[in-house]
Design a protein around this nucleic acid. Sequence first.
DNA 1: GTAACTGCAAAATATTTGCATCCTT
DNA 2: AAGGATGCAAATATTTTGCAGTTAC
Lengths: 148, 148
Amino acid sequence: MEELLDILKKNQLSITEGRKKILELFLNSPGALAHADIEKSTDASFDRVTVYRTLQTFVEKGIIHNIPTTDNSILYALCKDNCEAGHHHDNHVHFICDVCDKTICMDHVSIPEVKLPKGFTQKQIDLVISGICDQCNHIIRLNDFADA
Amino acid sequence: MEELLDILKKNQLSITEGRKKILELFLNSPGALAHADIEKSTDASFDRVTVYRTLQTFVEKGIIHNIPTTDNSILYALCKDNCEAGHHHDNHVHFICDVCDKTICMDHVSIPEVKLPKGFTQKQIDLVISGICDQCNHIIRLNDFADA
DNA sequence: GTAACTGCAAAATATTTGCATCCTT
DNA sequence: AAGGATGCAAATATTTTGCAGTTAC
């Protein structure tokens, strides 16, 4: 958990319980987290408002960034590298499962170069794929088998 | 405006003022629209709730689909083709300008094939690029010039 | 000790639901 | 005429803001 404190220090944030807990969640999570996930995982050990403010601070500092979603929710994920306040260059693919609703970061699938029309400047690129994840597909197949 | 009625009829929706107006907005809009845009454009000529319900109906019928955003808003855009209720195969790129906040559909930039790990099934794919659009870049350049 | 962070309360905003009425077919 | 669509009111949910008390450095 040295990493945790390092990150906070590097970003000139004071070390508080809330920040430690929330950052830890991100470090231990394979995918992205929504505000609601964080509230659940922290078991309301601190205020709703603190979660909002902490997430906002983390985004401003470039520790996390948000991932586009098609429902009106915000998903947050750790910035892997090359991210600094205001500039995010996180370019891996996110997969949202329609069945279990989990978001998975596909670190190994990289986004191909996209050529923008003249005059456009690119800052962040997000590729969001929705469908059915391997686990849910597996369950579906098992059920089909049982039905037959 | 024949197209308009056609679309509604094809989807077995009764022709009402609200639906006509909202659908017309989409047909005339180059980019995506948010709930708020629609309320503004229709000048509150009908109820907030009707807008919610109409958008929902359109999505269910596959007339429009929603586009991922990084803030917690929902953007809607017309489905070009190949879309049917529940299945959207809209695969062009969306560009969100950090300065003017507009979303632009880049019809001419297509999303390259992405190979998913085994077990995953893909339904929808969205590529969202954020940055600065050509118009805002232009304005910025003019200002820089003025400063110098 | 001071500045920054947190919790609580409340305000502001956004979305959903129920029901009576009106409109489309 | 019947079913569906709308408007209104109200219930829920979500996010933001102000301020007083607490904590980190």
